[in-house]
Amino acid sequence: MLKLFSLGSAVVGLSLATLWTPMAEAQEATMQQLRDCAAIENPLQRLVCYDKLVAGDGAYTPARASQVNDKEGAFGREHHVETQDVPNEIHLQLASVHENALGKLEFTFTNGQKWLQIDSVAWPRPKQGSYFIERAALNSFMLGREGENRRMRVRRVE
């Protein structure tokens, strides 16, 4: 009986040791991933990183500012990618404008950016010409025409 108990204890001990080793390695990988998440400066991206780790979706790698070709291309996209040194205002040439089904204006500029009116300010049909988009409060943006004192709240769609 004592031999049987000793043999059972040895088998259980070896089984636990075998099971414990991969868990320790997995735990170390998780600790490294947690350190990587903690190093992310953007609070929203850091939260997404932690959520992906908990869900078991694998390592999360945030988009870096190097993926954005130029500062003007990053304007209005701060909530999508991590950016640095973006300007407070950009100047654009209007390529086209049309009204969507909700009566809001959709602007397309010559650099390929598309912006959508989000407020209810009534503007006369915009003319071709030089426009600017400036950063406003609470991560919003205002569209204005050069030489006019009118502004319209917009958000970037593309």
Rank of each mutant, 00 (worst) to 15 (best):
L2C: 08
F5W: 13
L7A: 14
G8M: 14
A10N: 06
V11C: 03
V12T: 07
V12W: 07
G13Q: 10
A17E: 03
L19N: 11
W20P: 00
P22E: 06
M23V: 09
E25C: 02
E25Q: 09
A26I: 09
Q27S: 14
M31Y: 11
Q32I: 09
Q33I: 00
L34I: 15
R35C: 08
D36I: 00
A39L: 14
A39N: 11
A39Q: 15
P43C: 01
P43S: 11
P43D: 09
L47D: 07
L47P: 00
V48E: 12
D51N: 13
K52H: 09
L53N: 03
A55C: 07
A55V: 06
G56S: 04
G56Q: 07
A59T: 06
A59S: 08
T61E: 11
T61S: 09
A63Q: 11
A63E: 11
R64S: 12
R64G: 10
Q67I: 07
D70M: 05
D70F: 03
E72P: 00
G73T: 10
G76A: 04
T83N: 01
Q84I: 01
V86N: 09
E89S: 10
L92A: 02
Q93H: 06
V97K: 06
E99V: 03
L105C: 01
F107W: 13
F107N: 04
G112W: 05
G112M: 03
L116E: 12
S120L: 11
V121E: 06
A122E: 15
P126D: 04
P126W: 12
S130Y: 06
Y131V: 02
I133W: 13
E134I: 02
R135Q: 12
A137D: 12
R145Q: 14
G147Q: 08
R153W: 02
